[in-house]
Nucleic acid binder design. Structure first.
Lengths: 142, 142
DNA sequence: TTTGCTGCAAATGCTTTGCATGTAG
DNA sequence: CTACATGCAAAGCATTTGCAGCAAA
């Protein structure tokens, strides 16, 4: 029951929030833009919910640590449920598919490099772009 | 003489283009947003040049490979002269200072990871965020 | 002259906000 | 009942575009 998550985050349990959480959990893709979420809401018959609410809710979820936001190439930010485990992304430039990965070597080097350059590392963003070799790959959306 | 660069890129040699190139070469910072460039143009007395032209010119320079564009956190894209040598960035979250670096280990791992995941790597974006330890650091712009 | 460039203002696309109404707690 | 949420429309940014006038080549 995801109402727990909402209450724990200090957010009132409302229909828009529940529905959006649900879509992020069982939606078509793990990485979705606000528009993607909004579109699915419409498809599911939740036509009273406005796009502004989707943005507001996603932003609140981000602040609450329920969701994380990524700025891949192409203007639109994408959101994904945050399971607490850090990871980076590789995005297919053709079909938009996103695959997550973690690499201890890279993580370690980043830390060292920051120290060498006199920085106290707080965060980082690593996105690889390439063409995936999936069967039906050649331009959808994700 | 930078007119060469322009001609080689198939661009007419015009005052806006020369001035913008000049600012990128001798400007206050190596990484500048379009607004930054525009602001310096105004300061230098080049007040006839419009912001739209700055954007257009920077985009053309990017297409010509003279300049590269980066999307760091904070909405505004930043541009830097492209010397052909690839590098990544570490950005100070306090003063906005940017330091460039290259790390062979990271580059190699990225390649391997892409292959392992069945991607043909085309490009990547790595940005580290942290606090730098420079003397006067605590919130400017760069 | 011809093709490409520029300034300006208007248009975009994504995201955020103001405000009056609604509703969870 | 009160504080917080929502929908809608309008506002905000960064960036792009249409167009008429200008200027390199």
């Amino acid at each position: 029951m995801e109402s727990k998550d909402l209450r724990r985050a200090g957010l009132k349990v409302t229909l828009p929030r529940l529905k959006i959480l649900e879509i992020l959990e069982r939606g078509a893709h793990r990485h979705m833009s606000a528009e993607d979420v909004y579109r699915e809401l419409m498809e599911v018959g939740e036509e009273k919910i406005g796009l502004a609410t989707v943005y507001r809710v996603l932003t609140q979820f981000e602040a609450a640590g329920l969701v994380s936001r990524h700025n891949f190439d192409g203007g639109q930010a994408v959101f994904e449920l945050d399971d607490g485990k850090h990871h980076d992304h590789i995005v297919c430039t053709e079909c938009g598919d996103v695959v997550e990965f973690v690499d201890a070597t890279i993580e370690k080097r980043q830390k060292s490099i920051s120290e060498e350059l006199g920085f106290d590392l707080q965060d980082h963003s690593l996105v690889l772009y390439g063409r995936c070799n999936k069967p039906g790959c050649s331009g959808r959306s994700e």
